[in-house]
């Protein structure tokens, strides 16, 4: 279970101009949840795009799985699309079952099981666009499970998600990691990262990497958010610090 799922070394990447992200060095082990923390535009999306093979690194190496289970922001999916939760989960079979074939009974059973795992067994036939933001996010997690990916990449999964759904999602990610998956969670929300195993702090470059206690220091946070930090008194013994212009669930892209 202690195998390395993903190893990134000396990675820099960009879009032709100056690198959007540089100097990334980290490893993701089986069973770990790593929060990728940084401001919007700090390079989180660039990192994901390199991992997915959409852009090539300008330097450094990435050693990872062939397939990643990507859980994108639900706002990107079409909500007027005539598909059920099950239809969306079944989209995860595209990388495993050749695209010109029909999906078989075993794939359907697998997709139904995946929806059951994310707590949506009662909503498999619901129209995707009519589910709540948290439910949609869980459908997309189920889709990644159908992909049978050993490394999951989640892009701001808690954006626009209500508190009960967020708690369900957190418990789910804990379970999925416990089964040996490696999980990367991009977020600009400091609160969320406190519960993960490790935090990768980025702002154009790697600022820090380690456990939340090691990394979420005032110096690191000031470097990420580039300004004033507010310490919230009496909240969790010093970990309850928030960037001053911290924004909650703003639903914007990145």
């Amino acid at each position: 279970m202690a195998g390395v799922r993903l190893s990134v070394s000396g990675l820099s990447a960009g879009y032709g101009g100056p690198p959007a992200i540089e100097g990334l060095d980290f490893e993701l082990h089986a069973g770990e949840r790593i929060g990728v923390l940084g401001p919007n535009g700090g390079g989180k999306s660039t990192l994901f795009r390199v991992l997915l093979g959409e852009i090539a690194p300008s330097s450094g190496t990435v050693t990872g799985p062939h397939d990643y289970g990507l859980v994108p922001q639900t706002e990107r999916s079409r909500l007027d699309y005539p598909v059920s939760a099950l239809d969306v989960a079944l989209m995860g079979t595209l990388s495993r079952v050749p695209w010109w074939r029909r999906v078989g009974k075993s794939e359907r059973r697998f997709a139904l099981e995946a929806l059951g795992r994310v707590g949506l067994a009662a909503h498999t036939e619901a129209t995707f666009g009519e589910l709540s933001g948290g439910q949609r996010q869980r459908v997309l997690v189920a889709r990644a499970l159908v992909q049978d990916a050993q490394v999951l990449l989640l892009d701001e999964p808690f954006t626009g998600v209500d508190q009960p759904s967020a708690e369900l999602l957190e418990a789910l990610l804990r379970d999925l990691a416990a089964e040996g998956r490696g999980i990367l969670i991009a977020t600009h929300d400091l609160d969320q990262t406190l519960g993960w195993d490790k935090v990768l702090c980025v702002n154009g470059r790697q600022v820090a990497f380690g456990t939340p206690a090691e990394t979420l220091t005032r110096a690191v946070l000031e470097e990420i958010y580039g300004g004033s930090i507010v310490t919230l008194p009496g909240d969790g013994g010093g970990v309850g610090i928030l960037p001053a212009h911290h924004h909650h669930h703003d639903g914007e892209g990145h």
Binding site: L52, Y68, L70, R76, M91, L94, W99
Partner: peptide
Amino acid sequence: RLLHRQLLVVGFDRSTARALGGR
């Protein structure tokens, strides 16, 4: 009929379709 799953995935979310094997 043959293209159905490709068209479904790409139409749903073009920007991330490739991660699912969409083209």
